[in-house]
């Protein structure tokens, strides 16, 4: 990949990112397969950081592999598991190994994961992590001490456009922009009208918005997400559309829906790009992009 992710964001092209979920264990074959499959089809690949607080192979490990394979990694960093020393140390390491993109997240609560007795650290929050990155770029660590060799990252964050009430989320969004976020990946969105209102508002800020697209594989999954995942709202018409699919066809219907949404987002210039999350079905991402008319 010739240009950096930051250059791609600035280029004005419709940006496509996706993500890789590392394994729970040392069997990295599937992860390698997914990286191989997606690295040339998207502009950058996130690697999740113990997503849902499930202990897994680390994000940095997946990112190094993407880099080795010639892809563009986005290092996901949550504040849940490391204090400010460990976070900064990992940023130094990542930089020396050619990783140039970081997504700063607060991180899910330990309690929703599979090591429920662990300590949730949250020494920094996502906004403070963004500020820390910018401070490190100026040559100082978070304690104000000189660095021997600095870093430079394209830093991103997340936002939940469907959260209720929305205003506290927007206040936080603006704090993240001020703290140095250059791009935002959103929580999964399904209601494009509502999302359009958010991007209309976000346009006043010098940041790129990548709409979160989660592949729906069944009506059941859609209902489950509505009931259990904060900030996700799948409208009834999409649930009905999935439910009406012939037996065995729900997944294809989900791919169609995702493709259609991405195509609309691009055609109507609602946002600057998409972040496609297939959660365990990464091999479907090329089909989604094809359905969106974006396959390369």
């Amino acid at each position: 990949m010739a240009s950096s992710f930051r250059e791609v964001l600035k280029s004005g092209k419709f940006v496509i990112t996706s993500e890789i979920g590392p394994p729970k264990g040392t069997n990295i074959e599937k992860m390698l397969h997914h990286i191989d499959l997606l690295k040339d089809k998207v502009d950058a690949l996130n690697v999740t950081d113990h997503q849902s607080s499930i202990m897994r192979f680390p994000s940095i490990g997946g990112c190094l592999t993407i880099k080795e394979q010639g892809g563009e990694p986005i290092l996901q960093m949550t504040c849940r598991d490391r204090n400010r020393l460990a976070l900064q140390a990992e940023l130094l390491f990542a930089y020396t190994r050619g990783i140039r993109n970081v997504l700063c997240l607060t991180g899910d609560a330990v309690l929703v994961g599979d090591n429920k007795a662990a300590k949730g650290v949250f020494d920094l929050d996502s906004t403070q992590l963004l500020k820390t990155i910018r401070q490190m770029e100026s040559g100082k660590d978070s304690g104000g001490n000189d660095l021997d060799g600095t870093v430079e990252f394209c830093a991103g964050a997340i936002v939940t456009p469907e959260a209720k009430p929305i205003e506290p989320q927007l206040i936080k969004f603006e704090k993240k922009v001020e703290a140095g976020a250059e791009f935002f990946q959103t929580q999964a969105i399904y209601d494009l009208d509502n999302f359009g209102k958010f991007t209309e508002y976000a346009r006043q800020f010098p940041v790129k918005i990548l709409a979160g697209i989660i592949l729906l594989v069944s009506a059941r999954m859609a209902k489950y997400m509505n009931e259990n995942v904060p900030g996700i709202l799948v409208p009834q018409n999409l649930i009905d559309e999935l439910a009406s699919a012939p037996k065995g066809e729900a997944l294809n219907r989900g791919i169609e829906i995702a493709g259609r949404m991405i195509a609309t987002l691009e055609k109507e210039s609602i946002c600057h790009g998409v972040h496609v999350m297939a959660i365990g079905r990464e091999e479907m991402v090329p089909d989604i992009l094809k359905a969106a008319g974006l396959a390369t």
Partner: peptide, 27 residues
């Protein structure tokens, strides 16, 4: 729950906390 100083996390919804739907989101 996370002791955040700069506003709510993305886990809040309808004023409740991601760790417990009965618990109010502090932010």
């Amino acid at each position: 729950h996370k002791g955040l100083l700069n506003g709510p996390c993305g886990g809040t919804d309808n004023g409740k906390c991601e760790v417990d739907k009965e618990k109010d989101c502090a932010w």
